[in-house]
Amino acid sequence: MMYLKRFLVGCMLLIGISGYAQERQGRGNMQNMDPAERAKNTVTRLTEQLQLEKSQQDSIYKQVLQQAQEEKIIFSNAGDDREKARSAMQASREKYSGKIKNFLNAEQAKKYDELQQQWSQRRPRQNQ
């Protein structure tokens, strides 16, 4: 009877650990997403938060798609030099942020700046 209890407890632990691992893996890791899918998700989020018009969505989608493609290349070429990749990603974000702001009105641009600040605070900081 005691062995059966230990066996059941062991099975429950294995199920719990594997479920947790799959849940962690299933989160939307942006680097592993297709650039078109990343761009679509980003524009959808921006549309909800900034009330973008259709013409703005189309223009911003093109910029975000280019950014996602560029960042995918940066990430794949980074190798072990994470600092180089981090600085290249930051430069890419700044470049495309300016381009995206060109399609926003003043109120949307202000809100976009606030959103970017929130996103940067949520972004994991490593080696700091």
Rank of each mutant, 00 (worst) to 15 (best):
E23V: 14
Q49C: 01
Q31N: 06
Q118L: 03
K72Q: 15
N32W: 12
S59G: 05
E114G: 04
L65C: 09
K62R: 08
A106K: 05
I17W: 09
V64D: 15
Y112T: 03
Q56L: 00
M12E: 05
N102C: 12
L65N: 13
E53T: 06
K110F: 11
Y61S: 07
K110H: 08
I60N: 05
R82G: 02
Y96D: 03
K95H: 12
F7R: 05
G79S: 09
M12G: 06
Q128T: 11
S87G: 03
Q117D: 05
Y20R: 08
Q22N: 09
K72F: 09
I15E: 03
G26A: 11
Q63M: 10
C11L: 12
I15Q: 02
K54E: 04
T42Y: 11
Q90L: 10
N77R: 09
A68Y: 06
E107S: 12
K110D: 07
Q67M: 15
R45S: 13
N105H: 10
E53I: 00
I15N: 02
E37G: 02
R82Q: 12
A21M: 14
I73R: 15
I60G: 05
S59L: 07
K95T: 11
E23H: 14
T47G: 13
P35M: 01
S18C: 11
R24E: 12
Q118G: 02
S92W: 06
N102F: 13
K101L: 10
L13D: 00
L104W: 10
A68Q: 05
G98Q: 14
L8W: 07
R86C: 11
A39I: 03
G16H: 09
D113R: 01
K72Y: 12
F75L: 15
A21H: 11
I100W: 02
K111C: 11
E37R: 06
A85R: 08
P35A: 01
K111Y: 13
R45C: 07
K40R: 12
E53Q: 08
A68T: 07
N105F: 11
Q49S: 06
P124W: 00
P124G: 00
Y3P: 01
T44N: 03
N32G: 14
M2L: 13
A78P: 04
P35T: 02
A106S: 06
A109L: 10
